[in-house]
Design a protein around this nucleic acid. Structure first.
Lengths: 359, 359
DNA sequence: AGTTAGCACTCTGGCAGTGAGAGTGCTAAC
DNA sequence: GTTAGCACTCTCACTGCCAGAGTGCTAACT
């Protein structure tokens, strides 16, 4: 039985690989353990069920398949999925051209640089993969101010509205020492727009000392302008420091439909993991830093709640300027090829949109 | 057996009412059908289990209780809950003073007129009632423009930023016939701010014809200004026409924990109903129009997916100016008294905030 | 050597049967 | 009108049982 002696770490011979792939394909569609007979019937492997049984036993001792119980078929382990994913990660199965066209069309109709991009990305991913779709906004490394506006709310209360280059709008309140009119605020806003447009937080801080001298007007106006400029710098810096602003998700219902989540307890764990976004933020950081697509499979996830789901996440945007993440979340038993192809496609689309924004 | 002959439509005698209430209280906490013995043990009803059995049989034939099977205890029907709710709807059980104080404090820390209000309301309701919390923004009947800003994006593309009195920010793109600079746009924005501030959509439309004459500047600027003013009127009108902008929700996980949703199929139906927001929008319309708290119990809901959940929804705001809705969603087996008390309390808080905004 | 047919073995899932427990409805006495 | 007593019903958990599916092993075959 030299076969059984093969070191578990070595690369798989083609036949074993084909059979592993067949097991995974079958299990992904049927959701039930797959036996040797079913394999020879459904896939043209060119060998008998007895031979397949031998290979299955090998794959199991290599840790790629598992056995719910003696007389059940085989189920892929996370390691098995891993091997499978490694062999397809570079390409996946891209969506059919017709769908690609449809989706391009939809993206064309959505407003420039608005949060609708990300919602649409999540929705598209969800409906194409029948899993949950995830998307984060493209977050600039160092955001730049595009436009500043000040709105009088009450005597001593103003609202600061900050439009960043990437289209993000930040709003905040400013309490004032002295009563001001909308006209005062408009004047200050115009001044600030002149001086601060296109600057980053650091650049604003750098010119703060020079700002006061450059300004005309009375003492109060100068001090007010200075305070607001500081506030703007702080707001932009806070935005820069945020790891992930928000994760848009859609199609969580698709995940609920998977038979493995029929007992709502498991489902609950997944939702809990998603609701506390810290873990997701970690994964997103990994993906953006590496700059390439990642597949996180089941228990490979550090978070125990994620033990039965997989994530396919891809970064998009321009490294060093603005990056975001799109991806899908589904049961470990996921159609990885399709999921990877779709995520790659959508991240490509988002790349184009970001390029357009920075052109 | 005169007892059994009582017309089912008549008002309940005090003892029956007390027993119905005991059944509901017990069932709400234990989630399992309650029998006559359990009732006499746990509640001081002053009568024997045999008597209670008689009353239970009456309540059942009146359609207020039901019987999963011969030898199980009683379970309240939707009609039973309805009777119960009618008797407490005016007051409910307000949250304990300590909690009230804590929540007031939290609301005090949140920014004025921002969406954080509504998120906080939903979160607060969720954690206090251990159900899902819901909240919509206070939607003005006729929104007024507070501030207009125009940002140059590209040569012939500008972004319109519209701040409404209620704090809502609307953003939209405007394609331009001729290339313009940010300076041009700023000039136009200043003009528009002068003329359109504090106006409603209808009022803007009314002054549109006079706008052009009043303006100086060249033909192009005049036509641009006119076009943007039209666009503003349209945007505000669209906002007015929207029934419900967004429903913030939190604590859906709490609902997942209820034993009646252990099979995820039922859960899925509820989520589906919430995801397609049309039905929720209907309910919200009912509540805002009536101006009072509403309890929608189980199958009373027209939407079949909602057959196993109840909603407690209360309006807040100022009738005729701006109204929104807060509430909770939970299993039919819900602690109605607590839920009603909490919703009333939170809607009161939101009232104060709105009053402050319009003061 | 690798492959295959045959076969004994194991384990699950569904089904019927059983008994304890809970709760009812009815009746007769208070 | 209320209560005690009791026969009755129905569920739930447990058991034993059987068919079916799938395995692992061995011996024969190419």
């Amino acid at each position: 039985m030299a076969r059984r002696m093969r070191p578990t770490s070595g690369p798989l011979d083609p036949r074993s690989k084909a059979i592993l792939q067949a097991v995974i394909d079958d299990y992904v569609t049927t959701a039930s353990p797959v036996g040797s007979q079913a394999l020879v019937e459904r896939y043209s492997l060119g060998v008998s069920s007895a031979t397949v049984r031998g290979v299955l036993a090998d794959l199991e001792s290599a840790g790629l398949l598992s056995h719910p119980h003696t007389s059940a078929g085989r189920v892929p382990t996370d390691a098995g999925y891993r091997i499978y994913v490694e062999s397809i990660v570079d390409l996946g199965a891209p969506p059919p051209p017709v769908e690609q066209l449809m989706i391009r069309h939809q993206f064309g109709q959505v407003e420039f640089a608005s949060e609708q991009w990300f919602r649409l990305a999540a929705t598209t991913l969800a409906s194409m993969t029948r899993s949950a779709g995830l998307a984060t906004a493209a977050k600039p490394i160092a955001a730049r101010v595009r436009r500043i506006d000040l709105v009088a709310i009450q005597d001593r209360l103003a609202s600061l509205i900050l439009v960043l280059r990437e289209g993000t709008i930040k709003q905040g309140l400013i309490a004032l020492d002295l009563p001001v009119t909308q006209a005062d605020l408009t004047r200050v806003a115009n001044l600030l727009n002149e001086r601060l447009a296109h600057l980053t937080a650091a650049e604003i801080v750098a010119i703060l000392p020079h700002l006061e001298f450059a300004l005309g007007g009375d003492d109060e106006t100068r001090s007010l302008t200075h305070r607001i400029a500081e506030r703007i710098a702080r707001t932009v810096a806070e935005f820069d420091a945020m790891r992930v602003e928000e994760v848009y998700s859609d199609g969580l219902l698709n995940v609920m439909e998977a038979p493995e989540f029929a007992q709502s307890e498991k489902l609950r764990r997944v939702f809990t993991a998603l609701e506390n976004r810290a873990y997701l933020a970690d994964l997103i950081a990994v993906v953006t830093e590496s700059g390439r697509i990642h597949v996180f499979i089941g228990r490979e996830n550090a978070a125990a709640e994620m033990g039965e789901v997989s994530l396919v996440l891809a970064p998009y945007g321009q490294a060093g300027r603005a990056v975001g993440v799109v991806g899908v979340l589904g049961p470990t038993r996921m159609a990885y090829a399709q999921a990877i192809g779709t995520v790659v496609f959508v991240s490509g689309l988002m790349n184009e949109l970001v390029d357009h924004l920075y052109a």
